[in-house]
């Protein structure tokens, strides 16, 4: 074992200088009980910075749309491309961030894309296409997508049930649009609503106990 005469200690490992006082060591080295692990620069910090910057840029480009009135010449195309790119980037961000839980990611996606569509519709002078077509289509396809995903990926019931439940509840929203008369064509909302109701009945009867157990865990105070 090497020795530091300054500290009067024996040093394990192949140190040339004392790890305590940096004085030169004497004697033969003994193996270190601790491995030398290479420095590890985590990508996490880079990803976090990238995520926050992206989010800021996307939000800024959404807010910037308010500066242009829908009557402006040629704004339609420009806006579609701009918003399309921003929305796409937002979707990618969310999908990457929530990749570990697909059901949760789906809920986030439905909410985000739904809001983007409504906002887009509002910017374009509110023709009602978002509530009539986009949101019902989005909700209905999310329910179908989840049905397929949890089967194909064999996701455990307890892992997805709360988020599947939330997706189904979101799917009931278009029924509200129908009731309040916010839609120009009742068919998409009706289809989405019926689909959600069916899913809800299935969840309640087949998985009711699991849902309650899961909610008790997550909501305990």
């Amino acid at each position: 074992m090497r020795r530091c005469t300054e500290c009067a200690v024996d040093v394990e490992g192949h140190w040339t200088r004392c790890p305590l006082c940096a004085a030169a060591l004497t004697g033969e080295p003994a193996p270190s009980p601790l491995p030398a692990v290479p420095l590890n620069f985590s990508r996490q910090r880079v990803l976090r910075a990238l995520f926050l910057t992206s989010l800021a840029v996307v939000l800024a480009s959404f807010v910037a749309q308010l500066l242009f009135s829908p009557d402006l010449d040629g704004i339609g195309l420009l806006r579609s491309v701009w918003l399309g790119l921003s929305a796409m980037w937002l979707v990618v961000l969310m999908a990457v961030r929530k990749r570990r839980n697909l059901a949760k990611g789906t809920v986030y996606l439905v909410v985000l894309v739904g809001l983007v569509c409504v906002y887009w519709d509002y910017l374009g002078g509110w023709r009602g296409w978002s509530l009539t077509y986009a949101v019902p289509a989005l909700c209905a396809s999310a329910i179908l997508a989840l049905l397929i995903t949890v089967r194909v990926m064999r996701i455990e019931v307890s892992d997805h049930i709360v988020y599947s439940g939330l997706t189904v509840l979101l799917g009931l929203a278009p029924l509200g649009f129908l009731v309040f008369g916010w839609v120009t064509n009742p068919l998409p909302s009706a289809i989405c609503g019926v689909l959600s109701l069916c899913a809800l009945v299935v969840v309640h009867f087949a998985r009711g106990a699991e849902v309650r157990h899961e909610l008790a865990q997550r909501l305990h105070v």
Binding site: M1, V9, P19, A36, V37
Partner: peptide
Amino acid sequence: IGMTVAAARVTEEELAEGEA
């Protein structure tokens, strides 16, 4: 009190020296 010291390498220089 006699004692032995073992330390894990943390800085770049320490790691460059490495454990043979």
